[in-house]
Design a protein around this nucleic acid. Structure first.
Lengths: 116, 116
DNA sequence: GCTCTTTGTCCATATGTCTGGACTTATCGA
DNA sequence: TCGATAAGTCCAGACATATGGACAAAGAGC
């Protein structure tokens, strides 16, 4: 992911509603969620939500897919990974000692923690 | 780090100049860099730079420290870690399988890679 | 074909952010 | 104390973004 795309992603998430949308979509990750349901869940007008979803899509953080008359949105974890990697790679910049604790801090969130 | 602080951090980095500043400060991480030098390095007027540095400071991404008549700024990797952790913890949300590949993607950037 | 539902787009208003000029504050040396 | 340097603050203009009303497009059921 290049710098421009990273800024898009950062800007996309730097907004209460969109951050909520992203978290909501992540929570529904396997199956996704239609636009209307997202708007209803967050009590946001559908047109406003449409604009936010467009921003998130442009930023590569969500993906849309038609399903009948609904459009189902899914969180694109790859986009989040791209953004994070860009920031951290940049931060490490050949000096692992700088962000090693960061990785260490993240790791416990993932392995062997099945409190689904 | 709470949601509000995370949004502050995201918004702070979602801007070309500030992202450049942060990267520059990370590159000078051990010793930091005085405000004037940062402004000069990026060819930005000192008052504009002052505003950007203030935003980064408020977001907890940089720390300021007086040194004579200069104010030396340092990147606060802890702030970056807080932001990243918030996003990823949220993304994992008890389901490690979702962002495990993300961690896997990050890890190689840090351990045993001393191309300083 | 017609109607309803779901979503997207266009537009104007309100709000927020970036930028840079002018001024103030703080520190150092003479 | 005075002047020079380094940063910060105040303010206003330019620009971008968020919001929500009104309308249009696409699909499903009759």
């Amino acid at each position: 992911m290049d710098k421009e795309q990273t800024i898009l992603a950062l800007a996309a998430l730097a907004q209460t509603t969109r951050l909520d949308v992203f978290r909501l979509l992540v929570a529904h990750e396997p199956k996704g969620m239609p636009a209307g349901e997202v708007a209803q869940a967050l009590a946001v007008p559908h047109n406003t939500m449409s604009a936010h979803l467009a921003v998130l899509t442009r930023a590569g953080l969500v993906q849309a897919k038609r399903n009948g008359r609904s459009i189902v949105y899914r969180a694109d974890l790859g986009g989040l990974r791209g953004m994070t990697t860009f920031l951290l790679k940049d931060c490490c910049g050949g000096r692992p000692e700088i962000c090693a604790p960061l990785i260490a801090d993240l790791s416990p969130c993932c392995p062997s923690q099945d409190k689904a």
